[in-house]
Write a protein that binds this DNA or RNA. Structure first.
Lengths: 209, 209
DNA sequence: CGAACCATACCAACTGGTCGGTATGTGTCA
DNA sequence: TGACACATACCGACCAGTTGGTATGGTTCG
């Protein structure tokens, strides 16, 4: 299986490098040659593994999504014993992840979709899937923390889950504009307070009942 | 003054077209030739008015910011007679502006900064200025609605003003990912409810006192 | 077993087209 | 007449993708 391993290594190396460069420069400004040079492979190898630059971008979004999914799935906030605690723990982790350089902490899907949404439908769809899929992991806990259920309750929870993603994506934009992640931390704090207040109101209603 | 007028016309026509194309495709994917063709001018005219593509992008961000400033300065929400009413009126206007095609309603600064923040410092700075300047127009009313004052109160209001911009920027990203502005409306609704709740709490405290 | 065959992984050089930018000419108006 | 506002034609660098090949390791069959 040496061949399979080598193949995986090279492909993954290209994807890791592409992930970094795409987050730094965006899709249009990232040259295939740059990726090849940074990954230490030739262009022939690149086009052996990926049909086109667009196919690479697609794979990179999925690669990014997979990595993020693994990261959050294995995080400790799941051990909190209330739904509200888990959601606030999730946000605390998101804030903690803001340490580090901007290209390492921002969302590839959010970055690329702005360039791609009108011109590259496949990339747009992959970005949408990544963001929506991540938001979806929050829905059950948000619904439970709000004390809602049924289709309508789930819809409300889903709207809030997407709202959290909007805040985080917007926080990244402000961070990029300001050239530092500080503002993003403040945004996540504000979001945490907002959600805590919503969960608190829900809990009080529940207790009263 | 015919020459001055013609000059202004051409320059403005280029800027208007560039604004549209940059919002549709981003900086990297927008060709100077595309802009020239769409504006009905030749390349010579383009480079007569702008030193480089980057200079055009810079001017386009400022052009966008100027237009937005004019739009919001002349809006009717300023006639609301409470600070909270004006802020919620502002958000209602932002929601109303979501009608129309995505490239027409999204923020050029937020779109371009993602591509430019690492590679084009001048563009990043112009985007930052546009976003921060717009947020700044909200600070006095937010501070008043929160019933805070002094340097610390203003800082709190400024954080909230930036938070509103983060939500709106993030809402645009989700809208682009989903291919429709509906989600952005939901995000602004959530933000409105959050702010209304904050203002309400502040008001109650004030009354009690 | 081992020779013939084949698929996979990768490489280096090249190509055809694109794109930002320039050099130079032309018409117009004060 | 000269300064300004363009137009035309062109350049050189760049860049996604191709081509024609090699090296390696696995599979088949006598």
């Amino acid at each position: 299986m040496a061949t399979t391993k080598a193949r995986t290594d090279t492909r993954t190396r290209i994807l890791d490098v592409a992930l970094r460069l795409l987050r730094e420069r965006g899709y249009g400004a990232t040259r295939v040659d740059d990726i090849c040079a940074a990954a230490g492979v030739t262009k022939g190898a690149f086009f052996h593994h990926f049909d086109s630059k667009e196919a690479l971008a697609l794979a990179a979004v999925r690669h990014f999504g997979d990595g993020a999914a693994r990261l959050f799935a294995s995080a400790t906030f799941h051990e909190e014993n209330t739904p509200a605690g888990r959601i606030l723990g999730y946000l605390a982790l998101r804030k903690a992840l803001l340490a580090g350089a901007l290209p390492d902490i921002t969302c590839l899907a959010g970055t690329m979709v702005q360039e791609a949404y009108e011109t590259h439908p496949a990339i747009r769809a992959a970005c949408e899937e990544t963001i929506a899929g991540h938001a979806e992991t929050l829905v059950p806990d948000i619904a439970a923390a709000l004390g809602v259920s049924g289709a309508e309750g789930e819809a409300r929870a889903r709207r809030l889950a997407l709202y959290t993603q909007a805040v985080i994506q917007g926080a990244f934009i402000l961070a990029k504009a300001q050239g530092g992640a500080a503002i993003a931390g403040a945004c996540i704090d504000e979001l945490s307070a907002h959600l805590a207040s919503l969960f608190d109101t829900a809990k009080r209603k529940e207790t009263k009942r």
